[in-house]
Every structure is written in structure tokens, then in C-alpha cells.
Amino acid sequence: MSPTTMTILISSLATGTIITASSHHWLMAWIGLEMNTLAIIPMISKQHHPRATEAATKYFLTQAAASAMILFASTTNAWQMGTWDITNMMDPAANTLFTMAIAMKLGLAPMHFWLPEVLQGSTIKTALIITTWQKLAPMALIFTTSNNLSTSVLLMMSMISTTLGGWAGLNQTQTRKIMAYSSITHLGWMATITTIMPNILMLYLTLYLLMTTSMFFTLILLNSKNIKDMATSSTTSPTITASAMMTLLSLGGLPPLTGFMPKWLILEELTMQNLTTTATILALSALLSLFFYLRLSYSSTITLPPNTTTTKYKWRFKPTNPITLALTLPASLLLLPITPMMC
């Protein structure tokens, strides 16, 4: 893909997100979401092989259906309430429809089926954009409408997402699919706290973006597409391999790493709201996610036989150290001490 085309597509992605996040009218928010969708489609299908074409088709159909549902929900709300303002989503039917549509946009269970397949059919860089930047516009809509959303519906979807994301990730060997189910699990945690404490939602989203970005950049540097590739990653760069292990543990929410902070705050808030059953289910489902993170960490840091290679270096790949990884990696590991500032 030519640099000019890529510049236009990335500019359209950024513009679509900004339009959606800054709009107060449902039509403008819908236009921003459509710009996002149309800009990412060529980036998914640029490999010109059947798997990429299939991923692009699945992504387009899912996102188009979700956008149509959002437009229908906003029209229904405007019909009942007489306003197109995003903050006045008061009609119960329109609210439920909007929640379903935004769950499909994000990849929340039970509307999550497209996300692992699309990520597996994309390149790692495109998968990074789908799991990070493409979540910003729907999350902006959720944050804007958080006062009107149904808490019970979001709690049910969050429990399904965290449990299903953990179970489904257990038997995966492809790193992109593991990151997809990781994304579903984290989105479930975010949905839990949306209507209770939106500021914790923003904190979780920020830390999720930091951790996921650093993990994907690590996978790009190590050129790891599956667990077998992770087993030979120490021959590329021992330092990056060790930091990849720490990032995976942070994604799993293991203290004293950064990823423990939002989970801790969410469980504390759920307990204070007498939602102890939900808190227990989320805490137990975190163990499932932690298991496949630990398995990936173990395979990447194993130094004893049986080894998959006897060579000291991977002769094809030269490790590089991008500035992005140097910026996101410390933040995704060492921010737990600032937790009192976030409460």
C-alpha cells in the first residue's frame, strides 16, 4: 500500500474518532463511526489473500449492522423524546438497542464472534489498531450515555464477556487470537463499571490501551504469531522477551504491576455497591485469563530443554527498539503506586 493511501486511511481513522467523540448529535456520531469502519477495511484486506478478505468482509458486515442499529436506536429515541441529543437517550427500548449495538461494535459477548476471526485474518499492526484505536469512538459514546444505560444489561454482558473470554482463550495457540480474547475480557471489566463509576472506566480504558499497545509492539518486534514463535523469542532479544512476560502478567492483573490497579478499584467499588456476586464472578474469571497469560509467559521465557532451537540468534530478524515501546512499556508495568491518586 502506497504511503499516500496509508496517510489518507489513518487520517480518516483519526477524523472519524474525533467526530464521534466530540459530537452531540446522533447523526454526526454515526458519520464518525462509518468513517472509522470504511477507513479500516482496506487496511485489513491489503494482504490480498482469502483469509484477509474474509476478515474484512466479516468486519464490514458486523460494523455496518451495528451502525444501522445505532441509527435506528437514535431515531426511535428522537421519535419518542423529540431530541437528537446524545445525552438524552431516555427511551428504554432505544437504550437497550443502543447497548446491543455498541456491544457489537466493541466485541462484547455475546456479540463477540467476529473479533478473534478478524484479528487472525489481519496483520499484527492492523490487529493493534482494531484492538486499541477502534475502541475509542464506541467508548466515547458509552461514556457520554453512561447515565442512561441499563446497569443490569451491562452487568450481565460483562459477566458473560469475562467468563467466555477466559474460557475461549485457554485453547488458543495464535497470539492474535489470544489478544482478541484478552480484549473481550477487558471490555467486560469496563462494561461492569460503566454506569457505577465512569471515571474508573476511563482509567481502565487508558491502562488497557497502554498495556495492549506495548504487548502488540513486543509481538511485532519478536515477529511472534503463535506460541511456538514465542518459545524462540529470547534468541531475538532477551530484554524484550523478559518485558513481554511482565506485560502479559500485567494484562492478567497480577500485583504489583499496573494491570492490577483497575481490577482492584472495580472489585472495591462493586463490593461497596453490594454487588458481591458479580465481583466474585469477575475475580474468578480473571484466573482463567491469567492462566493463558502465564502459559504464554512460560513459553517465552523457558531456558531449559526441551528447547525448540539450538541457535543463539534468529538469523532473519534484527531486533529494533522503537520509541513507542520505550514509552508504553514502563507505564504498563510501573503505575500501581499512583493508585491513591485515582480513587
Rank of each mutant, 00 (worst) to 15 (best):
182 S>N: 15
186 H>Y: 09
306 P>T: 11
335 L>S: 08
162 T>H: 06
327 L>V: 03
137 A>M: 06
234 S>D: 09
259 G>Y: 01
339 T>M: 14
227 I>E: 11
22 S>Q: 11
278 T>N: 05
145 T>L: 15
339 T>Q: 07
338 I>Y: 12
319 P>T: 11
160 I>R: 12
54 E>H: 11
254 L>P: 00
72 F>N: 07
19 I>H: 07
280 T>L: 14
301 T>E: 00
219 L>D: 05
150 S>F: 09
263 K>N: 06
112 H>G: 09
278 T>W: 00
67 S>T: 13
50 P>I: 09
321 N>S: 15
52 A>W: 06
262 P>I: 09
288 L>S: 06
212 T>V: 00
144 T>Y: 07
29 A>W: 02
286 A>E: 01
195 T>H: 05
96 T>Y: 13
137 A>I: 06
19 I>V: 10
319 P>G: 11
254 L>S: 01
264 W>M: 06
117 E>N: 13
60 F>L: 14
70 I>L: 15
36 N>Y: 02
322 P>Y: 06
96 T>C: 07
25 H>N: 15
119 L>R: 04
104 M>G: 14
114 W>T: 08
122 S>K: 02
29 A>Q: 11
78 A>H: 14
127 A>W: 03
324 T>I: 07
136 L>G: 02
243 S>R: 01
114 W>A: 11
270 L>D: 02
185 T>W: 06
87 T>D: 13
131 T>I: 02
23 S>C: 11
330 P>G: 08
151 T>R: 15
278 T>K: 01
27 L>Y: 13
174 Q>R: 13
291 F>S: 14
